[in-house]
């Protein structure tokens, strides 16, 4: 049943798509090198999982996951307001280490390194989404809605302000734009979408542990954003599909069993390098990496 396998991959693509376009909003459009994005994903996943296990309905888990992540997004915006480029990257990376350490050590709440197994699948309007096909529909609807919202934000007049801050913060402040407020909103909105992606992830995989929310897990998302091209939403979609499907397609190449692990990684890396040599700005990138 090749369908079951494809449905599974499409669900993961949907979840990563939400994660990637929300990072695209902060990194590509607003120029915030937010390496703490994976922490919002983790906060969302844990919030949703813990609420679901204490009996709350999926809708409440889902929304609270987004809102709690958003609150942390606003909080992160305060101390990092004046940081730019590499410094912002380091500070937000620090944030993701803090969140990881809390997930790992607050054992009473998160069960620490043991992780949380048995997270229930969503039940919507009395209809249980325990089979993967209905979960795929849910993921697709949420991914499309997220895409639409972020698309509208970037096309609005506010979207122009966001991009102007990326290109020249001082100039846009001279024109009377409040850059702190704008950056906080963007960080909050992007954290909200990472949070709901986390909620979907937790209820789909049904098991989470802190190791799923480390810097290493951010790398594929960051790759999607860069390969897709900064400040390009269609590019992000294309890159999500390619970067999620290529490693899986490489499972079918049929390497000799003794080199199957390293060969897959080497080929995958090679494909990425070739893409970036020929398309240094990514597929549809409009701006250079800061």
């Amino acid at each position: 049943m090749i369908e079951a396998y494809l449905i599974h991959l499409l669900i993961l693509i949907g979840i990563y798509l939400i994660l990637a376009i929300s990072l695209q909003l902060a990194l590509g459009f607003n120029g915030l090198s937010n390496f703490g994005h994976i922490a919002f994903f983790g906060i969302g996943a844990y919030t949703s999982a813990l609420l679901a296990l204490s009996g709350w309905s999926f809708l409440i888990c889902f929304v609270s996951a987004g809102i709690l992540a958003m609150i942390f997004g606003f909080l992160l915006a305060i101390p990092t307001n004046k940081l730019k480029g590499d410094y912002l990257a380091l500070a937000t990376m620090g944030f993701s280490f803090v969140v990881y350490a809390v997930l790992l050590n607050w054992t009473e709440l998160t069960r620490g390194p043991l992780g949380i197994p048995g997270i229930p699948r969503p039940v919507l309007l009395g209809y249980s989404l325990s089979d993967n096909f209905s979960f795929l529909i849910l993921t697709a609807v949420i991914a499309l809605a997220s895409y639409f919202v972020i698309y509208r934000i970037t096309k609005s007049p506010f979207g122009k302000v966001i991009e102007s801050i990326r290109d020249d913060e001082l100039a846009s402040r001279i024109l009377g734009k409040n850059s702190f407020k704008t950056k906080s909103i963007i960080l909050g909105v992007s954290a909200f979408f990472a949070g709901i992606a986390g909620s979907l992830y937790a209820s789909y995989i049904t098991f989470i542990d802190p190791s799923s929310f480390t810097m290493m897990q951010l790398v594929p998302v960051l790759l999607i954003v860069i390969v897709g091209g900064l400040a390009s939403l269609p590019g992000t979609i294309m890159a999500t599909f390619i970067l999620m499907l290529v490693p899986e397609a490489l499972r079918f190449v049929g390497f000799p069993s003794s080199i199957i692990g390293p060969m897959r990684q080497i080929l995958y890396a090679l494909i990425l390098i070739i893409i970036l040599i020929y398309k240094p700005k990514g597929f549809y990138g409009k701006v250079e990496m800061v």
Partner: peptide, 8 residues
């Protein structure tokens, strides 16, 4: 040794 990859 990654959970999401494991489900794949």
């Amino acid at each position: 040794a990654d959970t999401a990859t494991g489900t794949n």
